[in-house]
Each structure stands twice: as C-alpha cells, then as structure tokens.
Design a binder for these strands. Structure first.
Lengths: 345, 345
DNA sequence: TTACTTTGTTTAATCGATTAAACAATTCGG
DNA sequence: CCGAATTGTTTAATCGATTAAACAAAGTAA
C-alpha cells in the first residue's frame, strides 16, 4: 500500500513551502504568485497524483461538505427514490450524503443523529420518526442546519418540505364518492405522525363534507412497522359480512403494496367489486391488474427544495420555511365509476 | 449556535491535561489513572455533553469507520435493499455508510470513488459498472480494501460476493422446459457485465442441454439504462406473429417490472398464453396477477458476507475470496405447466 | 540511604491541511 | 535617493483529537 501523497510531498518536490502549494491549488492569492511557480506546482501535484485529504481539510475549515440523511428505511421505495434525488442534488453542490435508517424508532434516530453530528456533517435532512420532537428541538437549539421532509411537527417552526396531505386525501375521498362508492374503508396507521393523521383527517373530512359518514369499523389502523399479515387482517375485516366496503383507501405505498398482494388472491374484482385508491406511487400502482388511482407525491421537487433549504440554512442561515407542495391525484382504473354513476354522465 | 465542547474544555473544567481526558475516555492506561480523577473526568464530560470530534480523531488515527458504497442506482429496489442490509451490518461494527449511484457509467463511478477515497473511507463495497475494470485494478494496486458485489471481472483476483448466475439461469431454462414451453424468448441486457452475460449463457445452455434451440430473434437485448418503452418494444417483437414465443425469461427485476407493466395491458393470459420467469425478487413478483416464478438472490447473505470480507480486508488484509452464493428458484403460477404436460404427471 | 520501580500526570509532537502575519526583495512616487 | 507600496514567499499557529516520551512523586528493595 503506497502511502497517500500529501501537500508536504508536493511542496518538497517543487521546493517551496506547503503554504504556497495550498494557495495555488485553492486559487487563493491569485495575483501574488509567480506564474512559473504556480504552473510548476500544478504540474507536480498532477504528476504525483496529489489529492487533498478531506479529513484534514475539514478539520481546519470546519466544513465537511457532507450531509446526513435520516429516513425510516432506505429499502422503502419512497425513501430510496428520494435518497437518489437528494444524492443528485447534493452532488451538484459538491456535497456527499451519509445515510441511515431509523426504522421509525426514536432511539435509533437519536443514535443516527449523534453519529452524523459527531462526523461533523454540515447539515441534516430527516424524515422524523415518532416521538423525535425533542431531538428536532435540540438540533434547533444547537443551531444545526436541518430540514424535515415528509413528516413535520406543527409545534416546531423549522424548515420543512412535504406535500399537502390533508388536501390530497380529501381529493381521494371526493373522487371515490364521485365514482359512486359509499361504503368506504380506510387502511391507515396507528400513529402520532402528523402527516399520516392529516391523510386520515383529510379523507374523513372529504367524506363528511359530502354527507357520507364512516363507522369506526370502517377505519383500520395498523402499526407503522406492520407486517403483511397485519394488513391482510385489516382488509379481511373490512370486507367481512354483513356490510363489506365497496372501496378502500390506503394511506401509504407500503399499505397498498401489502394490500394489493393480498387482494390479488381474493375472489373479487377491482374495480367492480371494490374500488381502490392509495397514497404514493409504487410499482404496485402500475403492476396491479387494475391500474391504480393514487396520489403522486412530487418527490423530485421535494428533494430539490429540501437541498435548497438546507444549503441556505448552511450558508446564510436563511429564514425558516415550511413548504407544502401540491400532490397530484392520478386517476387509474381501480376507481372507475360504478355502472349506476356511469349511466348518469 | 453554541460551539461544540472539545477535549480541551473538559480538561480545563476538570483541571487536568487533555491527555488524561483522552486516556480516560478511551479506557487506555487503565491501571495508571487515579480512580477519583477518572470518575471526575467522566462526570464532567457527561455534564458538558462532550462528544469527540470524529474528524479530528480520524485525522490522527487514520481510521474513519466509514465505508463507501457504490451502486448503479440506489433507487433500484435491488440496491436499496442491499444498501439497507449493508447499513445494518456496518452499524453492528460501528461503521457508517456513504453511498453514491454510478448510473452504470464508468466516469461517474470514478468520480464517486475519488470522492469516497478523498474522504478516507476505510473501505469500499461496489457494484461495478461496465468498463470500470481499470478502476478496480487501481484500487487493488493502491491497497484499498474493497469488495465487489453483484458484478465481477473474471480477470481480477479480488474480493467478491454474488450469486451463481449461470446456474440459476440454467435452472430457469430447465424449469420452463419442464413446464412444457418450447419457444422461449429472452429479454436481457446488451452489456459486457459478466454476471449478466452469465445469466444469458446459463439460460441458453439450459435450453441447449435439453435439445431446444433458440433463434436470434428470440433473444432481445436492451440497454442497461433501458426505458420502459425499449422493453415494451422488445416484448412486442417477441410476441409478434407468425411465431410468437410461449414463454419469457427476464434477466433482472428492472426488466420484468417494466415488462409486466406492459404485459398487463395486453390481451393475453399468463401463464396460459405466456409463461414468465424472471431474475430477482421485486414487488412485481407478488403483485402481478399471476404470481411470478423468479430467482431469489440471497441479499441478506450477500450483504453480510460483503461486510465480513471488507472488514477482514480492512483489519488484517485477509486472503482474497470470491463467494458465489446459491440462488433459489421460487416457483410461482406464472410457469404453471401447460395442460399437455400436466396430464402426463 | 540509595537506586530502582511503580504510579499518576503532563509535555509536546503529530495527523494534513489552511491562513494570518511576518518577511524579503522589488518597484515606484515624489 | 528614501520611504512606501507592491510582489512573492515563508513561518508558524491552528483545527481537535491521540500517544510516545518525559517527568514527578511515592513506594520498595537491598
């Protein structure tokens, strides 16, 4: 293992001080350095294949050009897609991304944050887990630049980028009603995460505003880390006699993916017997035999804005902003109007 | 922004030298330090909420406890799942992961490696892109600990963990033949990546060994970064009259996902009109109306072994190893035997 | 008592960069 | 021709840790 070439090596080879080499390679003191010397330094640096040790540089400059990304689970398509976008946006600004999965656990989240901060990341983007409000507050108090994505806490005045969950879910409800369904089941999460509660509330409000009430039995809530079986059980109950639902609303990609895998095995037809509408895009939306109606989150915009906010926070500590993006309801076949409704139109 | 507490701060507060603080907090010189002093140091460190600056620590110790992960695209389920496993395995050993997506481009791969190495990662795990053989060779020459995953180069004697692609594909072929299909189409990649060629070769060998020949028109190859449309076109051609195929083999999750979305829209039935077998697990395998027959790669084992090999390389530079794991053919409904065959059994 | 250990702690160099300040050699204005 | 400004480069401190080596004080053996 040949040892790495340092500034010192370059300096020695050229016969100048390390300072000069540093100035040249960083284009500082432009006018002051003799051209031939600068040229020589660049030549030698290149010849020796010199690459600055970023660790040393960071120690001195107190900048790592690294951002930490904390998500619930990088294996989840929602987060891995977002991660990719964030990676690309970060790269444009010479930043590198360190990531970690919290698994929706506050403790893991704290550990991750500690690790990231110990490594002196310049800032953090995080999809906050439940009960991490104190952690976020602490970031704020310590003056760490950060941006929340996807999830937020109303009580905290911090940078945030996400979608209008309430409104999107409201739209879903209206759409299902317009399609002629009346007995609508909800598969959501049992959680305190506001963005997920918003989805539930928005959906229910949509129904209520149009005069449709929902009984408790029509609302199923599974754990955040629910297994396929849990989701199956929920659906089973919703479809149970004597009053099976004629439509289902899934509050996330995970739920609809699990749900559709199960529904695939049932002797019922979508959309004839059951209409389906889900939050989030996923392979499921296109692969299910009945192309799905779903809420598409503008992930690209989310990632882009998250980085933009973060860089602002890092650089000039710009004003705190909360960005609520519009989500788009993509109409598929899974909510095709019932015959009774279709006739009317 | 309150400034971070340093060793010096702790030392001053306690009234000792920084050396002593360092020794205590790292449990060095165990017997030599007065208990009361050690106790006091720990107390104060805790009280001040001292956390060592890993950057400074790394500079001195030449260890970052960071590993770099280079994949083709972190948004691809195969890689994001693997990333999650690697993250967890790394964490068990106190390592953190920095990642980057090469997009299958050698140039991007080189850039990523540079960034990672400039940051002094202790080692690298990479799914090598095409034409990156020189890059790998350079890693080797520079004595950088690394492990290839998924893809390999036969000419290089380096650490590697992947599956037996040839054998798995061979099995697929045999399975399709046993199901009664004879005109089998292949959707693969136009690439020099050996692991993908192995899949093609293995599949063809499987057919040939059982006396089934394949015409050129039955083999379609799309670009590594193929779009949905490209895959659709390939399938269209394979299904075109006058000799449509009665079975399809997809060489990766990306291909089958794109393919199934398309096939979903066609007026043909799987498995009656068309049998399907694919490499890689994905949501598609369970979501498609006809549960898919596919090759399941032992991702967990891959991630575990990759980290194990890497840590060995980092710590004692253990012997180079190539690990070829068995892949499992998971039988679904998409390759249910034809009636003619079923009768026989 | 003397010399040698042992115990407990500090000093100071170091990792590899950055950068303010000092310094030396020219050039320039009046 | 002298002091000031300009040009070109070096010195040395610094970032925040680690750690070999030095040192001081106390204990111990002969």
């Amino acid at each position: 293992m040949e040892k790495r070439v340092s500034l010192k090596d370059v300096a020695k080879e050229v016969g100048v001080s390390t300072a000069l080499v540093s100035y040249v390679l960083n284009n500082k003191k432009e006018g002051r350095i003799r051209k031939e010397v600068a040229q020589k330094i660049r030549e030698v640096a290149h010849k020796l294949n010199y690459r600055p040790n970023q660790i040393a540089k960071s120690l001195k400059t107190r900048k790592t050009y690294t951002i930490g990304l904390v998500v619930a689970d990088i294996a989840n398509a929602f987060f891995s897609t977002l991660a990719r976008i964030i990676e690309d946006e970060a790269e444009k600004n010479r930043y590198t991304v360190i990531f970690g999965s919290s698994d929706e656990m506050a403790e893991r989240s704290q550990k991750l944050l500690d690790v990231l901060l110990d490594r002196q990341v310049d800032g953090v983007i995080l999809a906050a887990a439940e009960k991490t409000e104190p952690q976020i507050r602490q970031l704020q108090e310590r003056g760490i630049p950060f941006v929340l994505v996807d999830r937020y806490f109303p009580s905290l005045d911090v940078n945030y980028v996400g979608v209008k969950n309430f409104e999107a879910a409201y739209q879903c409800a209206v759409h299902l009603l317009e399609s002629g369904r009346r007995r609508i089941g909800i598969v959501g999460f049992k959680t305190t995460l506001i963005h997920l509660e918003d989805r539930k509330k928005g959906f229910l409000k949509g129904l209520k505003d149009h005069g449709v009430s929902v009984k408790k039995e029509q609302i199923k809530e599974v754990a955040l880390d629910a297994s396929k079986e849990e989701v199956e059980a929920a659906i089973q109950q919703l479809l149970a006699e004597p009053n099976p639902v004629d439509a289902l609303f899934f509050a996330s990609n995970k739920l609809s993916t699990f749900g559709l895998i199960y529904i695939n095995t049932l002797p019922l037809q979508v959309p004839e017997d059951l209409a389906i509408c889900s939050f989030d895009q996923s392979d499921a939306t296109e692969l299910f035999y009945s192309r799905l109606t779903y809420v598409r989150q503008p992930l690209h915009e989310m990632g882009r804005q998250a980085i933009e906010l973060l860089l602002q926070a890092i650089n000039d500590g710009g004003a705190v902003r909360q960005i609520h993006l519009d989500a788009e309801l993509v109409i598929g076949q899974s909510t095709t109007p019932c015959k009774s409704v279709a006739k009317k139109n």
